[in-house]
């Protein structure tokens, strides 16, 4: 009898423990979950991450500080930051965003891959309407400590202390330094078609492939290309497949279609491009591609 009582009592205690555990979990998970107040950018919602990347890239256009841009991108926790930039650029283009808005992303992706600032710019003079503001009138500078949490002070990312990225990387061996005076390609110089090769690959679609280079044979991203044919038109840019080259772009051709190509940058024009026929040794025929190489004089 006492054994039965003991078991009954133990059961009640155990049951109460379980109920308490359930109540505690319900309260901590649903009624009053942990509230994040010091989140980091890696857990941002994807659309906010996109916005973050745009701001990083646009900021980079001004600062030309590649190390800092890379550090900022790393905050987003992307496995492949360059791929994330390129993918976002392609999504934006596909959704009809103007290229001017996409260009900073493409430029940053290119420079991250190159490892140096490929298109250094001269800082623009500030508009005369913006005088140095009088901060004292708008910002309270009191004796009190700033509104900064201890954690923020202890672990803040010292963005101040990033070293400026050299415009040209400092190679220590084997690579000849580039003359600074000719490091920037002339953006508006016309491109000339310097190579047109038939590409036969039965496993690949009939691609019209482009490669754009400057006079020093450096690949150029952001070149706008318009391809027209009798039933339509397509517009695209180089540099959105950095894994294939910063000056690379491609376009899938159809059979029995003649294409005309206009290079918006520089105003070049190439006509009568079509998918050539390729034949395997066993007699199998298929549509091949063409590789068009453009270079600035």
């Amino acid at each position: 009898m006492s054994r039965l009582k003991l078991n009954n009592s133990t059961f009640h205690i155990f049951f109460a423990l379980l109920i308490g555990l359930g109540l505690g979990l319900a309260y901590s998970w649903f009624l009053s979950p942990v509230t994040y107040v010091d989140a980091n950018p890696s857990i941002l919602r994807p659309d906010f991450k996109d916005q973050y990347r745009i701001v990083i890239a646009t900021s980079y256009q001004f600062t030309q500080d590649l190390a800092r841009a890379r550090a900022r991108l790393n905050l987003l926790g992307d496995v492949d930051p360059i791929g994330a930039l390129s993918a976002q650029a392609q999504r934006m283009l596909a959704s009809g965003e103007p290229f001017e808005k996409v260009r900073p992303l493409a430029q940053l992706a290119t420079d991250l891959q190159l490892g140096y600032v490929s298109n250094p710019i001269t800082p623009t003079a500030l508009p005369t309407s913006f005088n140095t503001p009088e901060v004292e009138s708008t910002v309270e500078e009191t004796e009190a400590s700033p509104n900064v949490t201890e954690e923020a002070q202890a672990t803040s990312v010292p963005t101040v202390f990033f070293e400026q990225t050299p415009l040209i990387p400092s190679f220590s061996e084997t690579i000849t330094p580039r003359p600074a005076s000719t490091s920037t390609p002339a953006p508006g110089a016309p491109f000339a078609l310097v190579g047109q090769e038939k590409v036969c690959d039965p496993s690949a679609p009939a691609l019209m492939q482009f490669m754009f280079m400057d006079s020093r044979r450096r690949e150029i991203p952001g070149v706008e290309i318009i391809v027209t044919w009798n039933q339509g038109e397509d517009k695209f840019f180089t540099g959105f497949k950095p894994e294939l080259g910063n000056g690379y772009a491609d376009f899938v051709m159809q059979a029995d279609t003649i294409y005309n190509i206009r290079i918006v940058t520089g105003g070049s024009f190439v006509s009568n491009i079509f998918a050539p026929a390729c034949t395997e040794p066993n007699g199998f025929s298929y549509l091949g591609g063409v590789m068009l190489t453009f270079q600035q004089p």
Partner: peptide, 26 residues
């Protein structure tokens, strides 16, 4: 025990947060 588990050991993980809760330095 439930509170300790739910708040400290295995708290709810936020994955799609908005920027308004970013740490101040960010």
């Amino acid at each position: 025990l439930g509170l300790i588990y739910g708040w400290a050991i295995d708290p709810i993980e936020y994955v799609d947060v908005t920027p308004n809760i970013l740490r101040e330095d960010y």
